[in-house]
Amino acid sequence: MEIVLLFLLAFMIIGSIIAIETKNLLSSVISVGVVGFNLSIIFLMLGAPDIAITQVVVEILILVVLIRATITTDNTSIEGPRDTFPFVSSLIFFGLFLMFAFFAVQEIPKFGEPIMKVSKEYLRTGPEKTGAANVVTAILLDFRAYDTLGEATVLFTSIIGAFVILRRKGRKGKAEVDEEKFGILEDEDIKQNFEGF
């Protein structure tokens, strides 16, 4: 079990190294997809089927959005020498971080032996109190429902923000003509492009 998890995690690390270091942005995005689907397999092995399903769906959406960002833009690779100061300082800092993390992970409970003070109560009384067979959904929609409400608020705020940033109407004067089409289609485009529908 732990060996398989180690193997999958090593695969994730290799995928993210490729995603970080490759020059072509499209291959970088696809490597991130590899990392995400691997993560979903790991979730499935750790006894978390809900998160695995969500991770697959979210990963597909992330791929779609990131490919939308990279595929219409032409100069996808950035030439030029690497800045030395950010490189060296980040290497030093991250080395220190990893050293402290190495000591810190020895203090937390061992892998496979969680403390579960609150969760035991949830597991014991959750199905009875809420009527949900799945304890994760019982927590999500009953014990911690305000948290989920906050999540919905954040989600809608970010979507409205993206919509406002990407929209065309009202941002430009009538004299200016759109050269490129970014984001959402206008009514005339829809009429032109999808006449047959």
Binding site: L46, A48, I51, P114, Y122, I139
Partner: peptide
């Protein structure tokens, strides 16, 4: 059972 609390919060 595994711990359901981190799973619920990670889902969020």
């Amino acid at each position: 059972g595994v711990d359901p609390l981190p799973q619920a919060l990670v889902l969020t």
